[in-house]
Every structure is written in C-alpha cells, then in structure tokens.
Write a protein that binds this DNA or RNA. Structure first.
Length: 151
DNA sequence: TAGGCCATCTGGTCCT
DNA sequence: AGGACCAGATGGCCTA
C-alpha cells in the first residue's frame, strides 16, 4: 500500500443519497448502504490494482524483447513503447528490404558494408561487442532524445 | 531540492 | 448492476 492519501471513501459515502424513509428503506438505511458502498469501492480498487499489475507485467515482457543496448537502467514505460515502435519499424524495414534484394548476399552487403568481409556471419552468431552495437543502433534508429519528439 | 517515474485511489464513462 | 477502462490527483522513491 503506497498511497497515504486521505481516503475519500468517507466523503463519497456522505454523498450517498440519504434514505427518506418508507417501506423499501426498512433495513437499508445508514450503515448497511454505507457498508455496501465501501465494499464496492474496495473491490473496485482491488480490480484496478490487478489490472495495473497486468499492464506492468505486459510492459516487463515487452522490455525483455526490445533491444536495450547501452542501457543498464530499466526503460521507463514511455521509453519502452517508443523503443518497441522503433524496433517494429526496423524489423518491418528489414523484411521489406529482404524481399526487394533477391539474394542473401545482396542484403548482407547492404547492411554490413562497414564490417570486415569475414565477420558477416557474426551477425547471426555470437554478438560482437561494439560493432554489432553500432549495427543495431543504425538499424533501429533509437535515440532517447527522439522521445521528446514523439507525441 | 526539483523533477521524473511510479503505484494507488477515485469518480466517470462505456459495455455486457 | 457490475466490471473494464481511463484520466486526474496524490504521495513515495530515486537521482542529478
């Protein structure tokens, strides 16, 4: 429980329509209605908490599949969404280019011209520190400052 | 200490 | 009627 905000449950209960009496109100007045309202509010709070926890779980799963090179700090939710967008667009571009360039060698030449000839296959093998990071940065175009431009 | 990020509560709205 | 979703408000934690 993080929030220490004064609970407005009381005020909401105060705003509950007051019973004016009559047969249908017998046994319904005062405390029972307030208890019902309080119970509903608590249940709604719990549902909302679960919903937000589900959302956070989804963000965590997204963080795991999104590139995070050079970032030892956890991406914020906003950054995670921006990175996911950037990542998806990069992958889409790769697929489109792969279709356009008929042979694998053409495609590799397009993307890896800055690599030594004998290191092409490192891309699909163990990651090369440094060079492959540049490759990824070039490919995904992720720059934290871009976040300020995204709306 | 200010600013960023986050969790939680809450009331409103929409949907089933 | 009750649940899901949303946005605003609030307060805690962390970092520069």
């Amino acid at each position: 429980m993080k929030s220490c905000k004064p609970n407005s449950l009381d005020s909401s209960l105060e705003s509950e329509p007051q019973c004016k009496g009559g047969i249908e109100c017998v046994g319904k007045c005062g405390s029972e209605r307030m208890e019902n309202a309080a119970r509903r509010r608590l249940a709604a709070n719990a549902r909302e908490r679960r919903r937000m926890q589900g959302l956070n779980t989804a963000f965590d799963r997204l963080r795991k599949v999104v590139p995070q090179w050079g970032q030892d700090k956890k991406l914020s939710k906003y950054e995670t969404l921006q990175m996911a967008l950037s990542y998806i667009m990069a992958l889409t571009r790769i697929l489109a280019e792969a279709e356009r360039y008929s042979t694998e060698r053409d495609w590799i030449n397009l993307h890896c011209e800055h690599f030594p000839q004998d290191s092409y296959h490192a891309l699909v093998g163990p990651k090369l520190p440094g060079e492959s990071e540049h490759y990824a940065q070039r490919l995904f175009g992720y720059q934290p400052e871009h976040f300020q431009m995204a709306t």
